[in-house]
Design a protein around this nucleic acid. Structure first.
Length: 550
RNA sequence: GCCUCCGUAGCUCAGCUGGAUAGAGCACCGGACUUCUAAUCCGAUGGUCGCAGGUUCGAAUCCUGCCGGGGGCGCCA
């Protein structure tokens, strides 16, 4: 029995209890969940439904709990129900019911963990979106890992999701970039507001390689702008691909200008009555929608601002049909939340249509000290620096196992260790141990067969592992709903621990050499195979590899 | 000044859409390899959940204030 099924049974038992006691069933929640108590004395699962509903229904929790218990205890697969404390229900499953989960996992295979909590949600997830004027920095690296994991988790929960990278290929920053390239190509010093770093020299050289006439062309700056941008963007795309981060769409800001979408968007906002002129500029009245101050759409020199592009981009996404627009921004951009939300509201959308996630910074630590310098990019740490320091798997894992709200100090020494102090090794090693067992099983002729006797899995380490396996779909659903992929990483560590403990318990999984396999060996093989599947699926959602041998 | 994130074991952090005696890894101490990977496991030690109020049957979790630290507050992108 899965926790979800049990929760449904708890709810229906409660409904029956309400009826029997003549209480108003309107106070019952639509859904409830059971939790795994820390203390094994509290059974396999616990429910607080009596506590939550008794007061609203005008009765006392214990009396209600007793009635629920009476009904629930008669349910198939439920071994025992105890009332504890003020009215908790402590539920124990019989071993067979608990053991069913391994069969479900094996049957579901790769798809185990998918759920329908976000079924039908048509969402756009924008992340990284680093300016194509330089490599992706450490903060962007965090989003590359976390955004990609979130995309996977949301898709696994049924969302129809497009991952998107906004390319700021218009505006003054690109001019500075092109000027910097041109200057370096001519051997001149970097102009004011220009970009520095070895990568600028590299790209300048590559532009000259691609276009030997670049310096003698009618407008050299245009050659450097166009070719340089393309080279930089390709470099970023390649870096992301090597990192395992996939984007469905790279969306060009310049395209918004070229297609006249900015005029369209501003016209739309004007028609809605939110635009006015003052001090020679054109403004959007964002203060009407909770922003601190109004924002300029077109400056007094007659140029569209970046903010105007944002409006057009928002409208573009909405017209492509997305109902939920999620943005991941760095902490340095948190000041943009107010004006961004105002865009959504100004176009008349409901609160919640736009969702902005803010992620804190990342420091790369060596010997306890932050690293500030990058070989290629000068005064910033890049994605490639992080990967070079710890590898793709450790980098992705390290960047996804923490809440976006907390700052990350990524300690190179820790994340390159081969031991259980390094969480990524701990989880990957658990997975590779499942393969070790499966190899041995194969060698000795032990097979899963058509089924197994789930009631044989009754040791504490076995039932703990079963309960951990059963949790996965709910973890994925919660991670998707709360946009917190780190929950999957923490879960993977918990599962890996449960697996290691099972493996190290005195349970012989495979029969000894020369022995005939018994039904208990078969049952444990099912447990092993389902652990392998869930570890693979969990690591897969984080974009971390699952090696078969280490 | 305003906004925002953080403050939980010696360290790094989970837990926060209110639930039972607050958890994990590391570090420290003591154990377990004739065995499917010991890159593992078991046990012990370790806490006024920054401080003070409030909400309630119940607060690490929600609200208010304060303290300490990170970041942000342009007709820049």
């Amino acid at each position: 029995m899965t926790p979800e099924t049990l929760a449904e049974k708890v709810l229906s038992a409660t409904r029956e209890a309400f009826e029997a006691l003549g209480l108003d069933a309107a106070v019952l929640p639509v859904q409830t969940a059971v939790e795994r108590p820390r203390d094994p004395k509290h059974g396999d699962y616990a429910s607080n439904i009596a506590l939550q509903t008794a007061k609203k229904a005008g009765t006392n929790p214990r009396a209600l709990a007793e009635k629920i218990t009476e009904i629930l205890a008669a349910t198939d697969g439920v071994a025992k129900v105890d009332i504890a404390g003020p009215g908790f229900l402590n539920i124990s499953l019989d071993a067979a019911a608990a053991g069913e989960i391994a069969g479900k996992v094996v049957a579901a295979g790769d798809s185990y963990g998918t759920n329908n909590s976000m079924e039908g949600v048509y969402a756009n997830l924008e992340f990284v979106s680093a300016n194509p004027t330089g490599p992706i920095h450490a903060g962007g690296t965090r989003w590359a890992a976390m955004g990609d994991a979130l995309a996977r988790v949301m898709r696994a929960s049924g969302a129809k999701l497009t991952s998107e990278y906004y390319v700021n290929d218009a505006g003054a920053q690109i001019d500075h970039f092109a000027n910097s390239l041109l200057a370096r190509a001519k051997g001149e010093p970097t102009p004011e507001n220009g970009y520095v770093g070895a990568y600028i020299d590299e790209i300048a050289a590559d532009v000259l390689k691609a276009r030997p006439d670049a310096l003698t062309a009618p407008e050299p700056i245009e050659v450097f702008r166009t070719v340089g941008l393309e080279l930089m963007l390709n470099d970023i795309k390649q870096t992301l691909a090597d990192f395992g981060t996939h984007f469905d769409v790279f969306f060009s800001e310049k395209g918004l200008h070229d297609r006249g979408e900015i005029d369209t968007a501003v016209q739309r906002l004007t028609d809605l009555g939110h635009v006015y002129e003052a001090d020679g500029a054109v403004w959007l009245r964002t203060t009407e929608f909770g922003d601190d101050k109004d924002r300029v759409l077109k400056n007094s020199r007659g140029a569209w601002t970046y903010f105007a592009s944002d409006c057009a981009y928002y409208l573009d996404k909405r017209e492509r049909g997305f109902e939920k627009l999620v943005f991941m921004l760095g902490a340095d951009h948190h000041g943009y939340v107010g004006r961004m939300q105002a865009i959504s509201r100004a176009f008349g959308d409901e609160p919640g249509t736009m969702e902005i996630l803010i992620g804190q910074f990342v420091n790369l630590l060596k010997n306890g000290e932050p690293i500030r310098l990058s070989k290629r990019a000068g005064n910033m740490i890049t994605l490639n620096d992080v990967v070079e320091a710890v590898g793709v798997d450790a980098a992705r894992y390290a960047l996804t196992r923490y809440s976006a709200d907390s700052m990350i100090d990524l300690d190179i020494d820790l994340w390159t260790k081969h031991g259980n102090e390094n969480p990524v090794y701990y989880v990957q090693y658990a997975h590779s141990r499942t393969h070790g067992v499966l190899r041995t099983a194969r060698d000795r002729g032990l097979q899963l067969g058509d089924g197994y006797d789930a009631s044989l899995l009754d040791k504490p380490q076995e039932s703990d592992l079963l309960k951990a396996l059963a949790e996965f779909p709910a973890v994925v659903a919660t991670a998707a709903e709360l946009r917190e992929p780190h929950r999957v990483a923490r879960y993977a560590e918990e599962l890996a621990g449960a697996w290691h403990r099972f493996q190290n318990s005195d349970s012989q999984i495979v029969q000894r050499v020369g022995e005939e396999p018994g039904p208990v060996n078969v049952a444990r093989l099912w447990l092993t195979e389902s652990s392998r599947i869930v570890l693979v699926n969990a690591l897969g959602m984080l974009g971390v590899s699952a090696p078969e041998r280490m």
